[in-house]
Design a protein around this nucleic acid. Structure first.
Lengths: 221, 221
DNA sequence: CCTCGATTCCACCCGTGGGTCCAGGTGCTG
DNA sequence: CAGCACCTGGACCCACGGGTGGAATCGAGG
């Protein structure tokens, strides 16, 4: 801990955007920062790869919508071949697929195009230092995705379930028929049906199919 | 877009940590930055709230483990009463519960204590500007949580399914009974059963329960 | 033209699932 | 001890699910 964290030399940055009207001014304005060197400007993903292969690069500022090879795929390949190169995404699109795709591919930052020069330079420096900078709305979306999908929610189940009922519920979620559940628990099938009826009533479950979905959502399966 | 984003005046920061041995040096070292004013140092969550109530505060640098009121609960209350105050978490713990709890409570940054001074000041500035800075490992964990739940793989299905069969399959995954599926597709229940039997044979599905699991895994539900 | 795959439908059978009611046994707690 | 919650089991009923076989229409393609 408490490593120096200073970047004594200037950060070597590649700017990637298919629109020259965006790419050129962006590269110019970034070069104004005394600690940033824009070493290349790329119009598509393959140009990014050649630029990175050509010389040492610290950070790639990447647009997502590009011809030939899009930003996500480019990010993925960079992560495989040049894991030390940090990718910061700068795009107009902030939909879930783009965000999850880019971050999942290894991007270390995600900015939308209403970010200012300060925001962009800060994100570049953070990415070079191993941190990750996200736009506020991007973080909100990311969290919303997590919350709906993974909040380890046993809260979606009414807590009144008895241990045995929960156990039966888990086995239903694994797709076992009543007889299979009975054998696994060393009880009669009638008992299993009783438990199922009780827990269905408590949890407001209609179907066995419904039960499977709920069990998976609840993280029991 | 392209707002000024400059913070002309110095950032007013509250440092919160129950250990004086951490809190004091941290406050001192942050004050060295010419754009940061440490306006208060708090030893627990309630001290943070009084400090924020007392004067205008831009950013709270918050430890999670604190007596009286922990960092997550404090963050939550700040979000309710002072939505303009940004919270940056600085803690030794990087487990999923802490991360999701803090970010879910509204924290705009999450650093572990191996972050250097540069990293911390950068995160403070980013948070004040509406961005969010995460440690690399924190982002990785966050993404891992997302990925286990939303991996969008349709490869688990044999490709031989006809469009209609895939459609029926999706509806099964949503827990609909055959009659419901029939109504939704404007066909008879017999037709639905035929499709189901065919796709069950093709995909090697035994049960309806099994089908629900497979549909969810395949990202169709 | 004729075949083949896809889609649509019907009839039949029967196993399982789901609902209801009831009841004996255990163990904890007021 | 009396009550309560839980687990266990049985009996009954009926709807839905799943399997089989057959059949019609239609469009694409040999």
């Amino acid at each position: 801990m408490s490593e120096p964290t200073q970047e004594p030399q200037r950060l070597r940055v590649v700017v990637a955007d298919d629109q020259a009207a965006v790419r050129e001014p962006l590269a110019a304005v970034l070069g104004l920062s005394e600690d940033i060197d824009v070493v290349a400007a790329a119009a598509d993903g393959s140009e990014v790869l050649t630029a990175v292969a050509a010389g040492p690069v610290d950070v790639v500022l990447m647009d997502l919508r590009m011809p030939v090879m899009d930003g996500i795929e480019t990010t993925r390949r960079l992560g495989e071949d040049y894991p030390d190169v940090a990718v910061v995404v700068l795009t107009t699109f902030a939909d879930d697929d783009s965000i999850l795709g880019a971050l999942g591919a290894g991007a270390r930052g995600y900015l939308t195009k209403n970010a200012g020069r300060q925001d962009i330079t800060r994100a570049i420096r953070a990415a070079a230092a191993g941190q990750s900078v996200l736009d506020r709305e991007v973080q909100d979306r990311l969290l919303a995705t997590v919350r709906t999908k993974a909040p380890e929610q046993k809260q979606t189940l009414p807590g009144n379930l008895t241990p045995r009922e929960r156990e039966v519920f888990t086995l239903i979620g694994q797709g076992l028929p009543n007889r299979g559940i009975a054998e696994k628990l060393f009880v009669s099938e009638a008992t299993v049906k009783t438990h199922i009826n009780n827990l269905f009533a408590k949890a407001g479950i209609r179907d066995r199919a419904d039960a499977v979905r709920r069990a998976i959502e609840a993280g029991l399966a």
